[in-house]
């Protein structure tokens, strides 16, 4: 398909989409409406389950099964990236050489790394109370660790990031979510049913199963992102492209 034909096809399709989308938008509930039937029920259920953060209650309690699926997507994507980016037979692994770093960068990175990891841990631990949770805090934990790469160099990062441990933790986190789901079955309820004592509203140990599932997700997301970024860093830093066929290989 030539570029011109493709552009015409796109314009036609975009016009059809634009017309029908705009028509549909006029039929939606008004922007800013006070009438949110699902939202009102979800908020009521969150308060009933003693979970101050209604979004966490929806994610880890009311529709925890969906979150299990979402977490499996993350796990599968990390696995796929690891398989796709593994070292091929004809690629060489070069030892990255240390590079000079500005002292101010080093100081800022070394100072911020523990702070970022601490804030990430806080966001995971308070997922049932304040904005945040396992997904957000997990990403913060993973990026905080990579300050070691920005501020120092790759070999320092490798020391603070034992990849085999994090790969195992990724699987442990994903498995722990499923196992926590069986707690409901053992207690005579449904899979992923919130069967633990609900605790006092707005306390750290409240929401029953929510903090535990939240922590499992935090571990899985943090180690998943670390493993994922490690694959891309390996490509950029460690793996040498074969020099003899720069113009393409069959």
């Amino acid at each position: 398909m030539s570029r011109r034909v493709r552009g015409t096809v796109f314009l036609l399709a975009a016009a059809v989409f634009a017309v029908f989308f705009a028509l549909t938008c006029t039929q939606l509930p008004h922007f800013g409406t006070a009438d949110h039937p699902y939202g009102a029920r979800a908020v009521a259920a969150a308060v009933r389950q003693h979970t101050a953060n209604a979004v966490s209650s929806v994610n880890f309690d009311q529709r925890a099964l969906d979150t299990l699926g979402e977490e499996s997507i993350l796990f599968g994507a990390v696995l796929g990236a690891v398989v796709l980016l593994r070292r091929a037979r004809d690629e060489d692994r070069a030892e990255p050489a240390p590079r000079p770093v500005l002292p101010s960068t080093l100081l800022l990175g070394a100072g911020l790394l523990p702070v970022t990891v601490l804030v990430g841990g806080y966001v995971v631990a308070h997922g049932q109370l304040s904005p945040g949770g396992g997904f957000q805090g997990g990403v913060m934990l993973a990026t905080g660790l990579h300050l070691a790469y920005v501020a120092a160099d790759y070999r320092v990062l490798r020391r603070v990031r034992p990849l085999a441990v994090f790969a195992a933790l990724d699987a442990v986190g994903a498995g722990a979510f499923t196992l926590l789901g069986f707690a409901g079955l053992i207690a005579g309820g449904a899979f992923l049913e919130n069967v633990l004592p609900l605790g006092t509203f707005n306390q750290l140990a409240s929401g029953g199963l929510v903090p535990l599932v939240n922590a499992a997700v935090g571990v899985e997301v943090a180690s998943g992102v670390i493993v994922l970024v490690a694959q891309f860093l390996d490509q950029a830093v460690e793996i040498d492209e074969p020099a003899q066929d720069a113009g393409g290989r069959r």
Partner: peptide, 20 residues
Amino acid sequence: APVFSDIPVGTPVVDPVVQA
């Protein structure tokens, strides 16, 4: 925000379902 750690329960909040 649909987070009741620092606001009284019953305050009008946006829909938490779509946020999730």
